Computed example of a mutant assay.
Amino acid sequence: MANVQYYDVILKPVITEKSMNAMGDKKYTFFVHPEATKTQIKEAVEKMFEGTKVKSVNTMNIDGKKRRRGMTVGKTAKSKKAIVALTEDSKDIEIFQGL
């Protein structure tokens, strides 16, 4: 695996209606580096956001969608998504406040 630092693991947050509803249960969804492991994701969240303690990490690999441009067929890039659950005594993640 490539040398992935903790600030390279989390790419961007996923902002959808389903992920916003899960924030009430202290579950946050992020797009992450495709080669990142669950332990790397846990460490990255705890280092990037002060006062957070991760309870569990669920990951899913998303294959690229098939796209056409005329007769040419291609695929979009594949990605990886992580749902991070925080403990009860953990602080909330501030980037989601006000959304």
Rank of each mutant, 00 (worst) to 15 (best):
I93C: 03
M20S: 06
D8L: 06
M60R: 14
N21T: 15
I93E: 01
K18R: 15
T59W: 01
D92N: 13
K65E: 08
F49D: 03
M1A: 13
K75L: 12
A77Q: 13
Y6N: 03
A44N: 02
E94T: 15
K12A: 08
E88P: 00
I41R: 00
S56H: 12
Y6L: 09
S90P: 00
K47Q: 07
K55V: 02
G70E: 03
Q97G: 08
M23R: 07
G51T: 07
E43P: 02
K81I: 15
V32W: 01
L86S: 02
V73S: 07
T16S: 07
V14F: 06
K65I: 08
E17T: 11
T52F: 12
M23Y: 04
E88A: 08
L86Q: 01
K80I: 12
V73A: 08
Q40N: 04
T87F: 09
N58Y: 12
V54P: 00
A77H: 09
T72S: 10
M71T: 13
G24H: 13
I10Q: 01
M60W: 11
Q5A: 14
T39P: 00
S79A: 13
G98P: 02
A2R: 13
S19P: 02
G74E: 07
G51H: 05
E94G: 10
A22D: 09
K42D: 04
E17A: 09
I10W: 06
K27P: 00
D63I: 15
R68E: 15
I10A: 04
G70M: 12
T52G: 07
V45F: 12
K47R: 09
Q97I: 14
L86Y: 05
A85P: 01
N21W: 15
N61G: 06
L86F: 11
R69N: 08
N3V: 07
M20P: 00
V57R: 01
V84G: 00
K66H: 06
A36K: 04
T59Y: 03
K27V: 10
V14Q: 01
Q97N: 11
D89I: 12
A77Y: 13
F49V: 05
K66F: 10
V84P: 00
G24F: 15
K26W: 08
V45H: 05
V45K: 01
I83V: 14
K47D: 05
G64D: 05
I15F: 10
P13D: 10
S56A: 09
E50C: 11
Q40K: 08
L86E: 02
K53W: 10
D8C: 04
V14R: 03
M60P: 02
I95T: 03
I10M: 06
E50G: 11
D8Q: 12
F96V: 11
F49S: 03
E35G: 05
I95R: 00
E46F: 11
F31V: 09
P34R: 12
T72M: 10
T39C: 05
R68C: 13
E43M: 12
K18P: 01
S90A: 09
S56T: 13
T87G: 06
E94Y: 15
A44I: 06
A82Y: 04
D89E: 12
H33L: 02
M23N: 03
N21E: 13
T87D: 03
I62C: 02
K66R: 14
M23F: 10
F96K: 07
K65A: 10
Y28I: 14
N3T: 11
I93P: 00
V73R: 08
H33K: 01
K18D: 11
